[in-house]
């Protein structure tokens, strides 16, 4: 049995428990339930970290070289991003929706066919370690731990994806809450979540993180492509879709500058943006042929 898969199973169980606890907090609004939920989310984050670490040990390189590994990274970043947000804003009920997204992601990762999960050596195109780092670390005989464009590109992109996923969750909550607020209806279930105005602002803040990270991901991809493929841009479907996604979020940001586009329309744009992210991540990998190895 591969250790990383053991940790994965463990994390999966905890994500289900975490989601249940947050949902329970939402419904019953008991403080202790909220505390348990946060604690479980931390344990799940620890387990996810262990999946990544053990996978790095098993494969001998950064755990970002196939679809399953990148899913774990996405889950890790979403969970970490959520916990940071909870720590800053102290709104716990949002956890129910974010953790549902994460659990769904866990489920889809676990259903991947084995060839997407296997421990594999890096193929030639993915070997991109930074020379300066390799030579620096080799002074202490640690050169195997040097990272490169693969690691940087994937991690920055996935932090972006995670922020967009959180923004998506918040946009859904916004639409729910706004619907009842505008009808002046009090719905007990929705009292635990913050006002729609706050949700709108938080959804925007998540995009304000995701947008630059996606940009750094795109630029680092371009730098890498300039080493690997003979040019910084070749309109490969993955590249193009990342640009499409980026344009949608750029439209979102400008829509906010022209006041009228906050609230509902902004929420729809955020949802559209996340749909593009999902296609960028899974759709392109499975439907459109291209130069990208995976993900």
């Amino acid at each position: 049995m591969i250790l990383s898969l053991v940790f994965f199973t463990f994390a999966f169980i905890f994500y289900i428990l975490t989601t249940t606890a947050y949902a329970g907090y939402w419904v019953f609004r008991k403080k202790w339930l909220g505390q348990i939920a946060t604690a479980m989310a931390c344990i799940a984050l620890g387990a996810t970290t262990m999946v990544l670490i053990s996978r790095a040990g098993e494969s001998g390189h950064g755990p970002f070289s196939n679809l399953w590994e990148s899913m774990v990274l996405f889950i890790w970043a979403t969970n970490a991003g959520y916990l940071l947000m909870e720590y800053r804003y102290k709104f716990k009920a949002i956890g129910a929706i974010v953790m549902s997204i994460v659990t769904l992601a866990m489920l889809s990762a676990s259903l991947l066919p084995y060839r997407f999960k296997d421990v594999e050596p890096l193929n030639p195109a993915l070997q991109s370690k930074w020379k300066w780092m390799t030579s620096l670390l080799s002074r202490w005989d640690l050169q195997n731990y040097a990272i490169g464009w693969l690691d940087f590109h994937v991690v920055t992109t996935f932090i972006g994806y995670a922020a967009f996923a959180i923004s998506f969750g918040l946009a859904i909550l916004y639409l729910l809450k706004n619907r009842y607020e505008s009808r002046q209806q009090r719905v007990k279930l929705l009292e635990a979540i913050p006002d729609s105005k706050v949700l709108d602002e938080m959804s925007y803040r998540a995009i304000a993180w995701g947008f630059p990270f996606l940009a750094v991901g795109i630029v680092s991809g371009a730098i890498w492509a300039n080493y690997a493929w003979g040019g910084y841009w070749s309109w490969d479907p993955k590249e193009t879709w990342s640009l499409i996604t980026w344009f949608i979020y750029a439209a979102y940001l400008h829509a906010r500058v022209t006041r009228g586009w906050r609230g509902k329309r902004a929420a729809y744009l955020s949802i559209l943006g996340f749909a593009a992210v999902v296609f960028l991540y899974w759709g392109v990998s499975f439907i459109l042929p291209g130069l990208h190895a995976y993900a």
């Binding site: 439209a251 022209t258 586009w261």
Partner: peptide, 10 residues
């Protein structure tokens, strides 16, 4: 117009 162009490009 910006929003329109961005969406059109996408």
């Amino acid at each position: 117009l910006t929003i329109f162009i961005l969406i059109a490009l996408a």
